[in-house]
């Protein structure tokens, strides 16, 4: 077989060989993927991980803000299905379509009315294909060769947990982003009724099936907490839903890197507080 001239049969043979070897390696080694090529792919992979296995009884849904609570920070009873750049509706829809009924769902309220990512939902639940992907690892986004390479690089040369914990905020970037967020959050909030209806119907679906649904807020910079848009949004949720809120005290001890996203250390500590509060709230309800 001469690899350096073109021959159709050789192409197919080498291709099948590569695919076979790679599939086998994935099955034997099961590499840990800790880094993704982009946000979109990270979201796909999180959704797939959830659909194909990672189904803890307590699920957090939200946006990139709640996504800061990494699954590594949470106990086995919790799974975070928050999508960067995504929305609560995407998370809820993914759980519903997977057919799983969790014990509790915690809904991040900060960015609650963002559009659901229909493209993501369609892609991860593509008819028949999503069932095939469950068994053929090589087709799962998570196991793309470049993800394995960059995860390996990050594992070898990236920052460790201790180094992340010591990270210092870049004040210049913080102030710059804070200004952008301030500018955006003073704009009047216009409610899209269809999104509210969608949220209601999804919450009803889970409650009818016995799931307890709670709202919570991710800590953000003090200057943004009571901006017009967020206050209005909070009112809408409180007026339309009777669900309990997971109140997490001392919001201001947490640091954000840009006004709305928690820094690593803060996200780490917040995740523990979150779980403690969630467990005690469940006790109170009992």
């Amino acid at each position: 077989m001469n690899l350096f001239t073109f021959n159709f049969k050789n192409v197919i043979s080498i291709f099948l060989l590569l695919l076979g070897i790679y599939s086998l390696l994935l099955m034997i080694i099961q590499p840990k993927v800790i880094m993704f090529q982009n946000i979109q792919q990270k979201n796909y992979s999180f959704a797939q991980e959830f659909i194909y296995g990672n189904k803890a009884p307590n699920i957090i849904v939200g946006s990139s803000m709640a996504a800061r609570m990494k699954n590594e920070f949470l106990s086995e009873d919790f799974v975070n299905l928050s999508f960067a750049g995504g929305s609560v509706l995407t998370g809820l829809q993914t759980i519903k379509k997977s057919g799983f009924i969790p014990k509790t769902i915690y809904i991040e309220e900060n960015i609650i009315f963002r559009d659901k990512d229909q493209k993501l939902i369609d892609a991860v639940f593509y008819p028949l294909w999503w069932k095939v992907k469950k068994y053929i690892f090589v087709l799962q986004e998570k196991y793309q060769p470049l993800n394995i390479i960059i995860s390996k690089l990050k594992g070898s040369y990236g920052k460790s947990h201790e180094e992340y914990m010591k990270e210092i905020r870049n004040e210049h970037i913080y102030k710059m982003n804070l200004m952008i967020h301030k500018k955006n959050l003073i704009m009047p909030f216009i409610l899209d009724q269809s999104k509210l209806d969608n949220l209601k119907s999804l919450i009803n679906y889970f409650e009818e099936n016995g799931t307890l649904v709670f709202f919570f807020e991710m800590p953000i910079a003090k200057e943004l907490e009571n901006s017009a848009q967020l206050k209005r949004q909070r009112d809408i949720i409180k007026n339309n839903f009777e669900n309990e809120w997971l109140e997490i005290p001392k919001l201001n001890k947490y640091m954000t890197e840009d006004g709305i996203h928690l820094m690593y250390k803060s996200a780490y500590t917040f995740s523990f507080t979150f779980q403690e509060r969630a467990e005690s709230l469940l006790e109170e309800i009992k």
Binding site: F6, N7, V11, S13, I14, Q144
Partner: peptide, 14 residues
Amino acid sequence: NSLIYAVMLFLIIT
């Protein structure tokens, strides 16, 4: 050559 086209096919799939 065959190798390059096989690698491209492999990357399209994976």
